[in-house]
Simulated assay, not measured.
Amino acid sequence: MDTSIFIADYLEKHQRLIANLPQAKIAELIAIYEKAWQENRQMFVCGNGGSATNASHFITDLSKAASDKMDKPFKGMSLNEHLSWITALGNDYAYEDIYVRQLMNFAQPGDLFMALSVSGNSPNLVKAAKWAKEQGVFVIALVSSRPCQLAELADFLIAVDETHYGRVEDAHMGICHMVCYAFIEKT
C-alpha cells in the first residue's frame, strides 16, 4: 500500500464531506440546544464504539466548556459513561436496554435525546429513541447516508453524505464541536 496515496485520498474525501455539511441544519441544531438550555431541559446523548466516544466528548464540552461561558449550566449527560450501570442493565435485562433504562430514570417530556450512529440501526439506540419519542422527549439523530431506523424515528435528523465509518464519525464530532463552540465563542 502506498500510504501517501491513501492519506491524500482520505483527506480529499474528508475535506469534501466537511465542506458539504448542511450548515442550515447545524444552525437549527444549535438553536434546538439553545432552546433546551433556556428551558432548563436535560440533554442526553449516546452512541456505540467511536460514536460513544464522540457522545462523551460532546457532553464534556457542552456541560463544562460551554457552561463556563453561559449564565447557567447545560444539563447534559452521556448515557455511555456509567460502566457499572451499563453492565448491570446488560446483564440483568439485555444489551439493547442499556440506554433506554437510563432514560427511564431521568428523562422528562421536553428533554433532548441525541443518538450518534453510523449505521443508525443499533438496537440499543433504536429502542431508546422509540421510548423517548413515546414519552415526549425530542429525538435527534446524527447518522450516515445509509437508510436507517433512527432516521425514521428522529424529530430532527442530520444524515451526513458518507458511509465510511471514520469519516462519518469525524463529521459527527465536527458537528458536535460546532454546537458547543457556538456557545463557547458566543459574543
Rank of each mutant, 00 (worst) to 15 (best):
E152K: 13
D155F: 06
I59A: 10
M70N: 01
S51E: 11
A132Y: 12
A66H: 06
A129K: 02
D68L: 15
A66N: 04
N105H: 09
A141C: 10
T53K: 07
N124V: 07
C148T: 03
G50C: 07
T87C: 12
G120Y: 04
E152A: 14
M114L: 04
L103Y: 10
A132Q: 09
A154D: 07
A31G: 14
Q135T: 07
E162R: 00
V137H: 02
I158H: 06
V45K: 00
N54L: 00
D161E: 15
W131K: 03
F74A: 09
V126I: 12
V126H: 00
V139N: 03
R146M: 15
L142S: 10
Y99S: 00
M114Y: 07
V143L: 05
S84C: 05
Q135K: 13
A129T: 00
A31W: 02
D97R: 01
H164L: 05
K35D: 11
T60D: 08
L79V: 08
Y95H: 05
H57K: 01
Q38V: 10
D92V: 04
K133A: 14
I86D: 00
W131Q: 07
Q108E: 11
D97A: 00
N48V: 00
N80Y: 03
L142M: 14
I59L: 12
L153N: 13
A107K: 11
N54H: 00
Y95R: 06
G166N: 14
F113S: 03
D71M: 07
E162Y: 06
A31S: 14
